[in-house]
Amino acid sequence: MVRTSRPIRQPLTSTLVVNGVLAIAALYFLLPILWVLVAATKSPGELFSSFGLWFTDSPQAWQNITNVFTQDGGIFTSWVLNSILYSAAGALAATVLSAACGYAIAKFPFKGRELLFSIILGGVLVPATVIALPLYFLLNAVDLTGTYWSVLLPSMVSPFGVYLARIHANAAVPDEILEAARIDGAGDLRIFGAIAARMMTPALVTIFLFQFVTIWNNYLLPLVMLSETRTFPLTLGLTLWNSQTQRDPAFYQLVVTGSALSAILLVALMIGLQRFWKADLTAGATKG
């Protein structure tokens, strides 16, 4: 499938144009990240008085990082840990829930299966904002707003995950193997847990990563649900600091260094997990 042997001769002009455009695009995508990494080494004053893409004579990255971690009694650490908790726990639960549901929809012709799948697919198209506002009033009625659960529970539902799991179960888990396992006397749940889930691993990793990044990047849901700053994720925490810049310009540097740290964290994660991003799944989905 992957074309490993590239033709040796390509016209020089086309090589230059293609790679020139790609290089410019790369600059564009890296620019804000390069800027924030440089800006994180500056003093609050230099932030506004020096050229944006180069270091000043007296870099103070360590000083800035220390400030970020000691501000407000080290609340930044809580925000990082909260973000990791919300994303990892939410994505893990979402993966298990949607894998089981997607697999069952793919492999068992139960009554109302297509209707259920259509409703779930419709869920992919519903804007998150339509859900977040009424969800606040619903969870408020059961006294869950302001708790970790108010962010965790809604994050555990991934309609897109069910969609991916169904497609992948159809493609990667042959019916013959399920039949063989049944003849050997294995129950349907055991077949799913021990055999099918293992064959669906690439899809499960993809569902986990999609949901992890979705929760990590989420802003509206925690904004609506949380009020206690100790429970904030990074996104909400950094905007809290940003809202104080009017009062005290020193917060600009905190926002910049905090953004740089969180960008480094996620970029490292993305590059490290790069080989697990199987977008092929989404592409395969549209061909069916």
Binding site: L30, P32, I33, V213, N217, N218, Y219, T235
Partner: peptide, 17 residues
């Protein structure tokens, strides 16, 4: 990889930057 990196930066932080 380079083009995909910004996807990992939350929209709020992207807007701040």
């Amino acid at each position: 990889v380079v083009f995909f990196i910004p996807y990992g930066v939350p929209g709020v932080i992207a807007a701040l930057l």
